[in-house]
Amino acid sequence: MTQTAPPPAAPAAAPGDRRRRGRAATSLGAASGLGLGIALVWFSLLVLIPLTAVLVQASAGGWSTYWSILTNAQTVAALELTVGQAVLVTAVNVVIGTAIAWVLVRDHFPGKRVLEVVIDIPFALPTIVAGLVLLSLYGPSSPLGLNWANTQIAVFLAFLFVTLPFIVRTVEPVLIELEPEVEEAAASLGASRFTTFRMIILPSLAPAITSGAALSFARAISEYGSLVLLSGNLPYSTEVASVRILSFVEGDNLVDAAAVASILLLVALVVIVALDVLSRRVARYG
């Protein structure tokens, strides 16, 4: 089955899994030490240092400044909207994402391969184009007569669109790996199809669903491009956190921008750590 890389099943390389074949992890020699050094320099220049700069800048004015920026009414509204819609969208994705994965793995009908590509489209599509795409069906010129542009529903839809692949792609491989014998065993012990799903299949999927949900949430709160054309970015109404940050940047107010950005960054870090912990837990089940 297709699996696009970035919506992952687990963070790359669960470390310390000694069970892997040929796992001769050697310690660094001279050449590889140099390689590591170069890689770290590049990674630092590109990722680590810039992100650290955000945190540093955010705390530039001290704790009280930081706090006052975050409690600014418009900022609070933006954060509430962002987090609220992200949670809602994640909840929807848990259900529909699992359902989509189930249909892709367990069901067979003509045209199913097409759906595999369709699911990855939100991931590969430029976000600004995504906004245009959603506008065509849910904006002023909608053939269905809907006009949800510049409303909170637009935010909901945009989040829904960009987070589509995540849970599907984390659940799919787990579903594929499920042994049919396990379900047969449950049946032979007297479990109905539904009981088997509830007590046997779902628990096996839980870690994958959780990691997909974490990624979905992180992606949703980060979204920007699709909202530019779709939501109107109206303060107190349809303005999300990333838009707020952008307006600070455009106003050359980098401290405020960094402060709000630090919140988003913190959430991203929490998600990463949670996924790492989760993947170790799952490795226990073998």
Binding site: V182, E184, A187, A191, S204, Y285
Partner: peptide, 20 residues
């Protein structure tokens, strides 16, 4: 009769253990 109702015990070659 479906398997659920037959009250037969089945043991599989690869154990089919409930991993969780």
């Amino acid at each position: 009769l479906p398997a659920q109702k037959r009250n037969v015990g089945f043991v599989f070659q690869h154990y089919a253990a409930f991993r969780h």
